[in-house]
Design a protein around this nucleic acid. Structure first.
Lengths: 206, 206
DNA sequence: GTCGCAATGTACCAACTGGTTCATTGCGTA
DNA sequence: TACGCAATGAACCAGTTGGTACATTGCGAC
């Protein structure tokens, strides 16, 4: 018989389901009862482990960000030329966003709430941003080599890449409707992927 | 004495307030009572004119888009060279987004809801997209002139510009928190503005 | 002036929703 | 094997919220 009591599993299952539901319906739209229903446990457990709907949302948000950061730790572009390095960094960022739409949705939701929840997660700030650090490095190599322009910093470049990678996921529905173009269609992905590389490289080397 | 009965004014006031409240709190987060309170009229009028909370939201969304389209009609870049034309188009788009954050918020919200509401507003699709049409024109001039690359179309370029212009508004809070950089700070606006021009021109002429 | 109807105000409701109460159960341990 | 406590389940509650019933009022037409 499977263990009938497993605190870790219960907690994890709640987080998984809550991530899905919050990403789908937003904070206000999500219903505690719905989250509980989709679980093998009950609503009581949400309040037992997370104290409140807000506490659950905070836990979901934190875990989502920590997951992203962990993945970023795996990146490495030190052995590539600056030009190949930024292109690769941009493409990997693109892949990553494509693979985690629910994360992007959570971020959108958080911004609609004015970032009032994320502001309480000190853990995120402390751990820094691996992708941005890598970029910092590649960028300075390119600059001292003379191939990259010097009027933008790593955060500027990171913003351009983020903006491009977030958009096809975050705005897929309105854009798709207005321009009759499904930005998430697999057959279009390679073109989009190549484009962010072209874009950033052309810009930095101009 | 001011007119005590003015259907048009009542309707418009409801739409104005509702736009603000929906943009602030999302569809589920917005409260019908709150919208009514901030108006000189009552909740009853919302149901009188818009039938339901959803009806009101649809009206808000439609009006917001129509407003944007109307503004886009004013653009004209036909007398500029292709290079100057795209730069100007990008910069004007940037200005426009900066000036209408509440519109961007509504679009974000709509995407979180899977575009389920906008899909019912046929009026929007019918009117086309002035900015994209202009881009189409400038782009084809640049291509036949030989200055612009040919492996991207107008919608691709429009997406890049949109992504860049939307991001600083839509993600200001999470980005601002994580990178300790206020993307909406007026002192940074000019730099951001110039950058989208540089980016697109460098890319297209690469 | 008074009739007809659009427009409006008030009070109310039924359903929903986040959160709680309290009893119960399984698991490690002495 | 009995004890202590983490973990769990089910029923319940009080505040909130979208929506409505119904009475009333102002305005234009004649």
């Amino acid at each position: 018989m499977v263990a009938q009591r497993d605190a870790e599993r219960t907690r994890a299952e709640l987080l998984d389901v809550a991530t899905q539901v919050f990403a789908e319906d937003g904070f206000s739209g999500a219903r505690v009862d719905v989250i509980a229903e989709r679980t093998r446990t009950t609503k009581r457990m949400i309040y037992y482990y997370f104290a409140s709907k807000e506490g659950l949302y905070l836990a979901v948000l934190e875990r989502a960000y920590l997951g992203i950061r962990a993945a970023e730790q795996e990146l490495h572009v030190g052995d590539l030329s600056p030009v190949d390095g930024v292109r690769r960094l941009a493409e990997l960022t693109f892949d990553h966003h494509q693979a985690h739409p629910e994360f992007i949705r959570l971020v959108s939701i958080e911004n609609i709430h004015g970032g009032r929840f994320i502001a309480r997660l000190d853990s995120l700030r402390e751990m820094g941003n691996p992708a941005a650090s890598l970029l910092e490095d590649v960028l300075s190599r390119g600059r001292s080599e003379g191939t990259f322009r010097a009027d933008v910093d790593a955060v500027d470049v990171h913003m351009v890449i983020s903006a491009y990678c977030v958009f096809p996921v975050a705005n897929q529905h309105t854009f798709g409707y207005l321009f009759d173009r499904d930005l998430r269609d697999p057959s279009r992905r390679e073109h989009l992927r190549r484009t962010i590389g072209d874009l950033v490289v052309a810009w930095l080397t101009a």
